[in-house]
Design a protein around this nucleic acid. Structure first.
Lengths: 140, 140
DNA sequence: CTATGTGCAAAGGGTTTGCAGGGGA
DNA sequence: TCCCCTGCAAACCCTTTGCACATAG
């Protein structure tokens, strides 16, 4: 059983055929796929799974804190598996669209400190950097 | 002439009646209005201005670096006047939707340092904190 | 067996666009 | 004058939803 399905079982989520397929696809994916990509991967396993079900299942997984939705700009949402042990942020390569994860201790502490100073209890955050590679790698 | 219109003139942007009205409305607004709010404000001055024109003008202003578009979540985009002298970030009150601007020297330096360390030239960023007020002000 | 999930297609919300007519410089 | 801008409505894109049928437990 894959990590996503295990997390579902742990939360007593009813495991339908479709949810098993989508869980597998999410567990085995790397990078930050969007809904359509998950849909295609799921369809490669079971061509009858509908886009609506993929949307509904991803929303369910998100609400159960199993995956996290990334809304970079107004385009399609992307997803990543939640890993509470490794908080991280994202740097997006403007030329390739590549999403680089990074961690920084100062960032982590700073955002909590700032929220507190402003009189707020930090709930969540959105930290994205956009940039271009300095390594002269021209790519399309 | 207001600050937005002045910035347009400086960039040789053709000033139509509609653009003058929208510029005025943007210049005089406070907070972070969304397109519909600008549309209503503009219509209070000239009821014939269309939503499409508001969208087109805001996009123009954004492309000319006169205003900045904030995409907080997937809802309606919000806007603020660009002020290169006062870089800042946003904290969003989850209960009221209020957007609090803040500045932090460490944040500013940190993001540039991190991008550089990852081999990137920082182009832009998106830093939003979401939280709830500690001041026990229950509001709707 | 029953509550819950699914597929389909239509609806939804925000934003963009094609086109024909209008109007700055 | 000439090209750019505008209003209108339709189109777009991503996502959600109503409904009738299917199915996990």
């Amino acid at each position: 059983m894959n990590s996503i399905e295990a997390a579902c079982v742990e939360r007593n989520i009813r495991m339908t055929r479709q949810r098993k397929v989508i869980s597998k696809v999410v567990a085995e994916s790397s990078g930050h796929p969007n809904v359509e990509e998950f849909y295609e991967l799921a369809n490669a396993i079971n061509p009858k799974i509908s886009l609506a079900t993929v949307y509904r299942t991803l929303k369910l997984l998100e609400q159960c804190n199993i995956i996290r939705k990334l809304e970079l700009g107004k385009g399609k949402a992307r997803y990543e598996e939640v890993d509470i042990c490794h908080e991280h942020y994202h740097l997006i390569d403007l030329d390739t669209g590549e999403i680089i994860e990074f961690y920084d201790e100062h960032f982590k502490n700073l955002k909590e400190k700032i929220a507190r100073e402003l009189g707020y209890q930090l709930d969540s955050y959105n930290i994205e950097l956009y940039g271009r590679s300095l390594k002269g790698k021209e790519k399309d």
